[in-house]
Nucleic acid binder design. Structure first.
Lengths: 120, 120
DNA sequence: ATAGAGGTTCGATGTGTATCGTAGATGTCG
DNA sequence: CGACATCTACGATACACATCGAACCTCTAT
């Protein structure tokens, strides 16, 4: 039984990751939601993430997040437990994750400075 | 002659801007470069930005950056001067821009923790 | 007025990628 | 062993969008 065997899936060294890669990973709404979820629950098996997309899509996004250095995944028995690489990220991109996760939702439209637009 | 007339192009109130919108705007390599350029030079007319894409594309990106709240543009006579909305952004998303602009380039590959991948 | 410079808008094109369903891989349990 | 659960990998599809060139617009200068 190998006493709590935990293999970590391959992941990049954060030193080799560009900020652009991380931003691109965070730019997708579903992936951003995954990151928020993982931040609140600490860690979770892939299937436990409640998301508005199919399983295979979640798997794909987790792969993207892992390859961009944001998330690490451990094989625990039958399931894969994912977690944010919080401390490492803080060392590589100080303040980034905190500012993203700490961002408040937007106020519902209304008074713009000069404006008239706002959408695309 | 209206003594230094300066009209600002329409832009969204940052309070109504979602973090996802900003991240998506920053996710594009050319736009990220524009933001970096504007950060170093302070402000610049559209045409002065040296970028590996055509004029119309730069114009399109500046529009995206403006609509996502990152950049403001003033009509100064014949030219349009663009600038990062630094202070406002700091209030709305504290630390975000600083962490993005402060990010160091990636170390060239090499020793990964466990790894083997790193690219897409 | 005429020309010209600085930028934007428009339509078209190509590429990237988010998404899904199904099939396959791996591990657990009876 | 065989059945079942958890994910991932694989094609296929569809949509978003980055890019370009040309036409257009708006000042400025002559």
């Amino acid at each position: 039984m190998r006493t709590t065997e935990e293999t970590r899936l391959p992941q990049p060294d954060l030193a080799t990751v560009e900020i652009g890669t991380v931003l691109q990973a965070l730019a997708d709404p579903v992936r951003l939601q995954i990151v928020r979820l993982l931040d609140t629950v600490g860690e979770a098996p892939c299937g436990a993430l409640e998301l508005p997309v199919g399983r295979s899509t979640v798997s794909h996004h987790l792969r993207t997040l892992r390859e961009s250095g944001l998330v690490e995944t451990h094989l625990r028995g039958n399931t894969r437990v994912s977690r944010i690489r919080g401390e490492e990220l803080e060392r590589r991109f100080p303040g980034l994750l905190a500012s993203v996760l700490g961002a408040t939702p937007a106020a519902r439209a209304g008074a713009a400075t000069n404006d008239g637009e706002g959408e695309r």
